[in-house]
Amino acid sequence: MYDAPANKQSVDQSNQKITARNVQVFYGDKQALRDVSVDIEDRTVTAFIGPSGCGKSTFLRCLNRMNDTVAIARVEGDIRLDGEDIYHPMVDPVQLRAKVGMVFQKPNPFPKSIYDNVAYGPKIHGLTRSKSELDGIVEESLKRAALWNEVKDRLQESGTGLSGGQQQRLCIARAVATGPEVLLMDEPCSALDPIATAQVEELIDDLRQNYSVVIVTHSMQQAARVSQKTAFFHLGNLVEYGETGTIFTNPQDPRTESYITGRIG
C-alpha cells in the first residue's frame, strides 16, 4: 500500500522539519489541545487522524500560525521549524506562511482567473522579476499539481468555474507556486468525489519528493494510503504517533485500536 523507506526506523536529527513540544491551544476559556509533542520529518507525508473535534485541525493550523487570525485563540508551547521558534515575537507569520503553505478542506479558489490564482503567491512574495519567469512558475506549479493538461488552454478563465477536484488541485498548485517547504492539508479531499480524491491522493504522494506534507484526514483508509507517519488525536490529546504501518496494524494505545476498528469516532 505504501512504500516506507528502509531507514525509517532510525530517524536522524537532521531529517526533522518541524518539532513541536508541549503545545496547548485555548479558544477563550476552552482548552482545545493539551501537551502535544510531535516531530514531523522532511520529505514525508504525515497524517493526523482522529474523530471530529479531536484537535487535529487545530494543531495543523498552529504549524503556520493560521490560528492568529482567530481572535480568541491562544497558543502555548514550543513549535520549531528547522530549529527556529515560529512563535518567537520576531517572527512574521506572513514570512512563516510562505514557507509553510496550506490547502483547505473546501476548495477556495479566488474569484480570479486560473493564472492569477496560481500567480498570486509569487506576486505578493516578489519571487519573480519578469512576466516570463512568472509564466514559468505558473506552468510548473500547475504541472506539479497535475492540472496543467486540463487547463493549459483556458488559463484566463475563472478558477471558480472548474470542477471540485480541479479546484482543489488548483489550490494545491497555488500553494506550491509560493515555493513552500512544508505543505499543510486540512482534509483536502472531504469535499471531493472518489475519482477526484484518487487524483489528489496520487498528487500528495508525488509531492513527497520535494516537500514535507502534513495531512489531516477523517478517513483512515486515506491515511493508510498516502502517509508514512500517522498521529492519532483524541479529545485534544495526541494519543499515539508513529509509523503508519505500526499504527494501523499494531496500535499501542487501546483508544487508537478502538478508533481503527471503528468503535469510536
Binding site: 521549524l81 514557507k99 519571487l127 515555493g179 520535494n210
Partner: peptide
C-alpha cells in the same frame, strides 16, 4: 499524472522559494 513523472529537478518547490531564517526580516518583508 505524466507531468509529474517527467518533472525535471529544477521545478518550483525549493528552486525559487527564498530560504533564510524566520527570525530576520528580509528586505522584501
Amino acid at each position: 499524472m505524466t507531468d509529474i513523472g517527467s518533472t525535471p529537478a529544477e521545478l518550483p518547490g525549493k528552486a525559487h522559494g527564498r530560504s533564510g531564517s524566520l527570525l530576520t526580516e528580509s528586505p522584501m518583508m
